[in-house]
């Protein structure tokens, strides 16, 4: 009368990791990207296409679509906020700006960056 129904769920999970120069480079860029976006927005509020322009000039991003999930995540983390601004050419644009929390975050990153770059140059020298 008493029976036990046992269920087993197998989740296939596999990670393939290939190490090469391009991969390491892109990892480095990815790590820097957030910092650079915050830096850009620290100077002035801007909308996505401006940011893309500057990041492309700096060769920090290859495909433009990368920026959008990142902006949304930074916004959700409370580091950025946006407002709609009317544009003379076309539909209104989302202008992103740094929040107070974002400023604080940026300062933290700045210190971290200084430390990192000091460490790296120290290692290179020696």
């Amino acid at each position: 009368m008493h029976s036990i129904l046992a269920m087993c769920i197998f989740v296939p999970y596999k990670i393939v990791w290939i190490m090469n120069v391009d991969n390491v480079k892109s990892q480095m860029r990815k790590g820097m990207l957030e910092y650079c976006i915050l830096l850009l927005l620290h100077r002035e509020a801007s909308y996505a296409s401006d940011i893309i322009q500057k990041l492309k000039e700096a060769k920090l991003i290859v495909v433009e679509g990368t920026l959008y999930p990142l902006l949304t995540r930074l916004k959700n983390d409370g580091l950025l906020s946006y407002e709609w601004v009317e544009s003379t050419q076309g539909p209104p644009r989302k202008y992103y700006r740094l929040t107070d929390e974002g400023m604080e975050f940026l300062e933290n990153l700045e210190t971290a960056w200084d430390e990192l770059s000091a460490t790296v140059s120290h290692l290179r020298m020696s």
Partner: peptide, 15 residues
Amino acid sequence: ISRMGKPEDLNDGEE
């Protein structure tokens, strides 16, 4: 599309 990138290229670190 080649400017915006394929969906699989758009992975934000966490995802």
